[in-house]
Write a protein that binds this DNA or RNA. Structure first.
Lengths: 350, 350
DNA sequence: ATGCAGATTTGGAACGATCCAAATGTAACT
DNA sequence: AGTTACATTTGGATCGTTCCAAATCTGCAT
């Protein structure tokens, strides 16, 4: 008995059923590992499946079952290693749970975010993990995703809706505590004139970090000099350009708490250009602990956020939410860890 | 006339049709922008779509049409910035063409690659873009994906099948030319004792790069010292550990062509630990031009591969393949560009 | 024989869209 | 009025699966 010549049509349940002289329904039961089916027929079916090279059509199954086995992951910037590792973590945990990741990148544009969200939604993900673009607002996001899919926000808040009414879960870093730790560390090293450098004031993570900075300064009775609160885009380049702003007045700071590692690395460049040696003449800290931080010249004191683990955590939170759709919203704050390296030297004259 | 209270069921074509007193078929025509439908009814339908918050169910449509609007992207290592940027490029181009990216990470494990591929396949992607894990072999990959989906290989070859019989497209970097350029550059700077450092001999990209190195050396009548062909894993850490191997004999090399940037950065660390200043006492080059390369101490001479553009190119190639399924397989070699920075100094005594 | 319980198997109607051939409506021309 | 042409709409079958209630098959006690 020869099997049919390999046609180029996709092989379906019907083909298998026909090949075994069984009904579609029985074969379906085998596929789902039902205990109802006889050992022997199961074996027969499984042989046929292998023989014909059957591949399960999850889309059709999901259509009928009104379920979904995919989760959308929408990121503002995949090229940033922090998010790339996060994505790897999400995918790993989702795959382990039998889900598949639908990827979407927004490139920090709120309008592309809209487009990406609605395109992904058409593929019917069970849920959405979103790291919002900079000026994305809750109204639009909620309108795009509708009332059906659970949403997990990562890393940034979403403006425009009272936190009480938010119908999403959230996973954020402990920005405030992290910045406080970094500031306390610099104070302990003997610094008294400390700047907060980088980030945009309308970004939630930036204002949280700044709050941690202020908290530590005030606890130590140190002045928070307004002239040393420097804003800049969270990129190396802009940070390097804005370095001069620190040294405008008569007294200059001896250290800076930077918004993140990218900014800190940029500030290092700017310092070098002014003839100041970071880690010797000027101390600084970052945030994120990206790979480059350990390799900088000098290596950068920073806050480790374990992005891969955050990704796995985000996936877990989403899976829990799918399992219990009606529990109240969760706000999860992930701990961060101060990693002390050579960039946080004592002040020169100390 | 009040619309139904917002139920929690998903709204379908039928709901819209009922709401307009039209048939499903007509509404479907509207959705697909058919010119057949009357201006006025179209407007009526579109209003109703908005009103009820309809979201298109692409899975159902694809089932009926026997099409797909997703593409699987399977990567060996998303945490590597090179692949992260590549992924961002792929996603950008796919999204622009109306496709969605199904992500899968293998973590360099051939067995996970199998699992990831078969899981993704069940979601019926129109094609697969794969950067194979290190020891993945063609047999298994082809068995997993079956004869249906087009496959585009990125960056690495797939062992176990004669290239003639390969039923996939390929996008690779011009590894050989890149390494030749780097080597020629070092020779021009005055080096004569040059090592090739890093990578595994069973990796296709590594042997291509080594071939380019040998080509340049032989063209300049310089000896290819077997003791200076050092293998190591393509990571910073292992590269740093293996540094000593370069300095075992009586005469040491004055420069090294490194397998990639990660290896080069690791070698820099190893040199520093031995009291050698990279870029002054010893010259070296990398491959990839990752972000850290420009910021190293010293900045690293390397080969720029434009991973984001490669990603877009990969997506384009896949889309073309989908458009013309029966054209013969393409092998595309992407150019690389030598970026000269401070790490490739002349030899000390020159 | 008959009935009954447990173990297996099964037909047909879903899921939410698209396709196709046929139906309907409208206007214009003999 | 009858025919034709064109524009617009539609019912029902279909894609590949799952669900459900009902059918079939056993063996075994009555």
């Amino acid at each position: 008995m020869s099997s049919h010549p390999p046609t180029h049509r996709k092989v379906t349940l019907n083909d298998i059923a026909a090949g075994c002289a069984l009904s579609r329904a029985t074969v379906s039961l085998v596929l789902r590992g039902s205990p109802l089916v006889n050992r022997e027929t199961r074996a027969r079916v499984e042989r046929e499946l292998r023989l014909q090279g059957y591949v399960y059509n999850r889309a059709a199954a999901n259509l009928r079952r009104r379920t979904s086995t995919s989760i959308a992951l929408v990121l503002n910037d995949l090229a940033n290693p922090f998010f790339a590792e996060f994505a790897a973590g999400v995918d790993e945990a989702l795959a382990a749970a039998g889900y598949v990741t639908l990827l979407g990148c927004t490139g920090e544009s709120a309008s592309r975010e809209q487009a990406v969200l609605s395109s992904l939604l058409e593929h019917g993900p069970a849920g959405i993990i979103l790291s919002p673009a900079e000026h994305s607002n809750a109204q639009d996001v909620l309108a795009a995703i509708g009332p059906l899919s659970p949403l997990l926000l990562f890393n940034r808040e979403l403006g425009g809706v009272a936190p009480e009414k938010a119908r999403w879960d959230q996973l954020a870093l402990d920005n405030q505590r992290g910045a406080r730790l970094a500031t306390e560390h610099l104070i302990e090293r003997g610094h008294r004139r400390i700047a907060f450098f980088g980030g945009h004031h309308d970004s939630s993570s930036c204002s949280q970090r700044r709050a941690g900075f202020v908290e530590a300064m005030q606890a130590a009775d140190l002045p928070v000099e307004p002239a040393w609160q420097i804003e800049c885009a969270p990129t190396r380049l802009d940070a390097a350009h804005r370095t001069a702003a620190l040294f405008g007045g008569d007294a200059a700071p001896t250290a800076a708490v930077c918004y993140n590692d990218a900014v800190a690395l940029g500030l290092m460049l700017g310092l070098n250009q002014r003839g100041l040696r970071p880690g010797k003449d000027f101390a600084l800290t970052g945030f994120d602990d990206i790979a480059e931080a350990a390799l900088g010249m000098p290596p950068l004191t920073t806050l480790s956020t374990a992005p891969h683990e955050r990704g796995m955590q985000a996936a877990q939170l989403m899976l829990q939410r799918l399992h219990e759709p009606h529990t109240p919203n969760r706000q999860t704050i992930a701990p961060v860890k101060l990693v002390i390296r050579a960039s946080s030297c004592p002040p020169p004259a100390f």
